[in-house]
Simulated assay, not measured.
Amino acid sequence: MLSKSQLLLLVVGFCLNAAVSADVDCSKRPPFVNPKTCCPMPDFVTAELKEKCIQFNVTAPPPTDGEASGSFESKRRHHHPHPPPCFFSCIFNETGIYQNRNLDQDKLESYLQVVFKDSSDLQTAATQAFTTCATKVVEFEANLPARPAPSPPPGMPFCPHDAGHLMGCVFRNLMKNCPDSIRNDSQECSDMKEFFTKCKPPRGPPPSTEDV
């Protein structure tokens, strides 16, 4: 049985450990690290699919008005370009993975066995991410205010945003729940994971096609 002094040290140690683990300043984002450095995984989109959907892989031009062009969001998009919604719509339509806001589990698992063929752990994590995020996208879009969809920039096609929302959610989920068998546990990666696990993730478009 532990003595009173041993018990006191145990309680103090536990409290200090809890304080350290909770000590994350969410106002200070850690230095940028390429997510695929921390969770090295093969590209989700195959070269064949990129070729089939190449006409949709066109980045929208940045806003031209003074207020928008000087905003944080516009600067973020400028430095970290994101694909248009039509790109992932095309990817999912070609594979049959996600259509009309419905996830086809069989086609998803078949596709993951091809692109993540060297890691069953990654296949499992990606399956869970898609399942979770498909539900979140439905809930997210159900809570959006009823208003007309914004028009796309001139020369850009119009596509629903659910495919982009889904892929962005899946990517973030995989970064946070990267399998131990492939995860990079360097200090910079640990800091980034801790930040995104304990702090509310920023809202924004899905990751660049170079990241998937």
Rank of each mutant, 00 (worst) to 15 (best):
D43V: 02
V33Q: 12
K107T: 11
H80D: 04
A22Y: 01
A149W: 08
L49D: 03
T95H: 10
R172F: 11
N57R: 05
L9E: 09
F56S: 08
P152L: 07
V137R: 09
C178V: 00
L144W: 04
P30N: 13
F72V: 11
C133K: 11
F88K: 05
F88L: 11
D185A: 07
T209D: 08
D121P: 02
A68W: 03
K136L: 13
G70V: 00
T59H: 09
L174A: 05
A60Q: 13
I91V: 15
S181R: 04
F171W: 07
S110T: 14
P160E: 01
E109G: 11
Q55K: 13
P62G: 10
A126Q: 09
F92Q: 02
G70P: 03
C38A: 10
L7S: 12
Q123Y: 14
R183Q: 07
V33H: 03
C53A: 05
K75S: 11
P160T: 13
F130T: 00
L166A: 02
G96R: 12
G155T: 08
D23R: 09
C39I: 00
K36F: 13
F196Y: 11
F88H: 09
C178S: 01
L174G: 03
T46I: 12
K52W: 06
H80Y: 05
V45W: 00
K176F: 05
N173Y: 15
F44L: 14
P63D: 01
Q113F: 12
C189L: 04
P30R: 04
N57W: 00
N93A: 14
K193H: 06
M156D: 12
P40S: 09
S69T: 02
N177L: 11
P153S: 14
N173D: 13
P40M: 06
N17T: 08
L103I: 13
Q187I: 02
I182Q: 05
L166P: 06
S119L: 04
L49F: 02
P202M: 03
K75H: 11
K75F: 11
N102C: 13
C133A: 08
K117H: 14
D25C: 09
K50S: 09
C133N: 07
F14V: 15
C90L: 04
C169T: 00
N57I: 05
G70S: 09
P206H: 02
K107N: 09
E210T: 09
K198I: 01
D211G: 02
N34P: 12
N93C: 08
F158W: 14
V115F: 06
R183S: 05
P201A: 06
F130M: 05
T95A: 01
N100Y: 11
N184L: 02
V24G: 01
L108I: 15
C169S: 00
F92V: 06
E48A: 15
T64R: 12
Y98A: 04
S89N: 15
F195K: 00
S21R: 14
S71R: 01
K176G: 01
T37M: 11
S69F: 02
C178G: 03
V11R: 01
E67F: 15
P157N: 04
S110K: 15
A129Q: 06
L8M: 14
P31T: 07
C38V: 11
T132Y: 14
S151M: 08
G13N: 10
C15G: 10
C39E: 07
Q6A: 15
C189M: 05
R101G: 04
K75M: 13
P81K: 03
S120T: 12
D180G: 08
K198V: 03
